[in-house]
Computed example of a mutant assay.
Amino acid sequence: MTDDLSVLRYSAFAATPEGGNPAGVVLDAGGVTEERMQQIAADVGFSETAFLVGRTDESGVPRYRARYFSPAAEVPFCGHATVATAVALAERDGPGEVVFDTNAGAVTLRSVVDAHSGVTVSFTSVEPQVRDLDPDVLERLLGMLGLTGSDLDDRFPAREAFAGNWHPILVVDDRDLFDQFRFSPDEVAALMRENGWLGTITVLHSVGPADFDARNLFPVGRITEDPATGSAAASTGAYLRALGHPETTVRIHQGAHVRRPSLLTVTIPPRGGIVVSGGATQIV
Rank of each mutant, 00 (worst) to 15 (best):
T102D: 10
A228N: 04
N21L: 05
G272D: 14
H253D: 10
V276T: 06
A81N: 08
L263T: 11
T102F: 09
G230S: 07
D213L: 14
R9P: 07
D101T: 13
F46A: 01
H245F: 06
T248R: 14
A256I: 12
L264R: 00
G255E: 07
T265D: 13
A232T: 06
A50F: 07
G31L: 08
T236K: 01
Q254G: 01
V32T: 12
G196K: 11
D57R: 07
R140F: 00
A29N: 05
Q39I: 04
S117L: 11
F178E: 01
G45V: 05
D57K: 08
P168G: 04
V188N: 00
N21Q: 11
V75M: 10
F123H: 01
G79L: 05
P168E: 07
N165A: 09
G146V: 01
G164S: 09
V26E: 08
V25M: 11
R260Y: 11
S231K: 04
A115D: 15
S47L: 03
S117C: 07
A163K: 00
T202Y: 12
E187D: 15
G272K: 11
H205I: 08
T2K: 13
R175F: 14
L170N: 00
A50W: 05
R251E: 13
H80S: 03
A228P: 00
G196R: 12
D211E: 15
A84E: 11
D213H: 13
V98T: 14
V53A: 12
T148Y: 02
L109T: 03
G118S: 12
A238T: 02
E35G: 00
R260F: 11
T202L: 14
R251I: 10
F156D: 02
L89M: 03
V75Q: 06
Q38A: 12
G244C: 11
D136H: 09
M192H: 07
T249C: 05
G255R: 02
V113Q: 13
R92N: 03
T82E: 14
L204G: 02
A29I: 05
T224C: 08
R222H: 13
Y10T: 01
T202C: 11
P135H: 04
E127R: 04
A256Q: 15
R110W: 08
G31S: 07
G208S: 12
L152R: 00
V7Y: 04
L142N: 02
E97S: 14
G143L: 05
L191V: 07
G273P: 03
H80P: 00
F218E: 04
V207Y: 10
G230F: 06
P168L: 02
T148Q: 07
I201E: 10
R182D: 15
D28I: 01
R241W: 09
Y68S: 00
R241A: 02
L204Q: 02
S206N: 14
P219V: 03
D151N: 08
G20H: 10
T108M: 14
A84H: 04
T82S: 15
D226I: 09
W197I: 02
E194D: 15
W197D: 02
P185Q: 12
G164R: 05
V126F: 00
S235V: 05
L5E: 09
